[in-house]
């Protein structure tokens, strides 16, 4: 699959502070890629470099075949991308329609297509009926929707979204997430900055964990698998003291009993879990199932950013 975004050794230094340190990643066409990281991890700086608002101190990125460090390339990139910034940045006294008309004109859309797109996208986000209301009177969710429509108005191939659901209520956030998933169906490439793990897990095809440096890049499932949990759930036909004593003899970190289900926590699951299962069977236990509890993305994330 073609790489729509290809960042190579991107670095940005502000004075004595390195905001983004030598990061490389690529985003395929039609992929949703999430940049996940704590506050101050360099997510916004990365997006700003990719949409040519600030220049990298070193390194480069190619978007749709154009280099962000190249003057003419940057202008072509701006035509090709849509940005949903951290702050909606709409003209509050103007109506939603006038805001979108203005930005449509700045993107040099012909009159017919511009009006068609304003109508199409405002209908998509259920704001067509409110198009003539001043944006200042809108709720945060509605403003965010208008900001997303603004980013879509010129039908960009690439969408860069900086925390698109931050400060939104759950319903509004779900609406935005559904819209982003719809955009992927339409074949657009989406790069999302977020510190919302649940959101990243639900939407992103791949996730890059960023903490100034890019710590890991993979699918949410692979990240979870890579850092598995240390607990195993063993379901037995019957649990008795002999079985519990046999397990305790192996010295696990913790044992929790819930009826015939045991949750056993060990230091080294690869080595200790087979020994425990063996001990259970030797004590006369009949094992119905044994499953290791995988780490949640949250655990993976916390582990990665703390390292």
């Amino acid at each position: 699959m073609a790489k729509t975004i290809d960042a190579r050794n991107l670095t940005r230094i502000f004075g004595d502070t390195t905001a983004v340190d030598n990061i490389s990643f690529s985003v395929d066409e039609g992929e949703i890629f999430g940049l996940l990281g704590p506050n101050g991890a360099g997510k916004t700086t990365t997006i700003r470099m990719l949409c040519c608002l600030i220049s990298p101190t070193s390194g480069s990125a190619i978007i749709g075949g154009y280099n962000i460090a190249d003057r003419e390339g940057a202008m072509n990139i701006r035509r090709m991308i849509g940005l949903v910034p951290d702050n909606v940045g709409l003209y509050e006294t103007l109506s939603a329609y006038d805001n979108l008309e203005f930005f449509g004109k700045m993107y040099e859309l012909p009159d017919g297509l511009r009006r068609e797109n304003v109508e199409k996208y405002l209908k998509l986000v259920d704001l067509w009926d409110k198009r003539d209301r001043a944006v200042g009177s809108f709720s945060k969710g509605m403003k965010q929707k208008v900001a997303i429509v603004r980013a879509l108005i010129h039908d960009p191939k690439v969408l860069l979204m900086d925390k698109p659901t931050v400060n939104l209520d759950p319903e509004a956030a779900k609406g935005i997430r559904d819209l982003i998933l719809q955009l992927r169906k339409d074949g657009r490439t989406v790069l999302i900055n977020t510190h919302n793990l649940d959101e990243a897990q639900r939407m992103c095809d791949r996730i890059g964990v960023l903490k100034t440096k890019l710590i890991a890049v993979d699918t949410p499932q692979n990240l979870e698998r890579a850092i598995s949990g240390t607990q195993t759930v063993v379901v037995l036909e019957e649990v008795n003291d002999d079985i519990l004593n046999a397990i305790k003899a192996v010295n696990p970190k913790d044992i929790k009993r819930d009826g015939n289900k045991l949750i056993i926590d060990v230091n080294n699951p690869e080595k200790e879990t087979p020994v425990i299962i063996n001990a259970i069977v030797s004590a006369g236990g009949k094992v119905i199932s044994a499953n290791r509890i995988g780490a949640s993305l949250e655990e993976v994330y916390l582990k990665l950013v703390k390292e």
Partner: peptide, 13 residues
């Protein structure tokens, strides 16, 4: 104040 300039600067202007 309205933080609208970032959105304007990202257009081909």
């Amino acid at each position: 104040i309205e933080k609208s300039l970032e959105s304007l600067l990202v257009t081909p202007v």
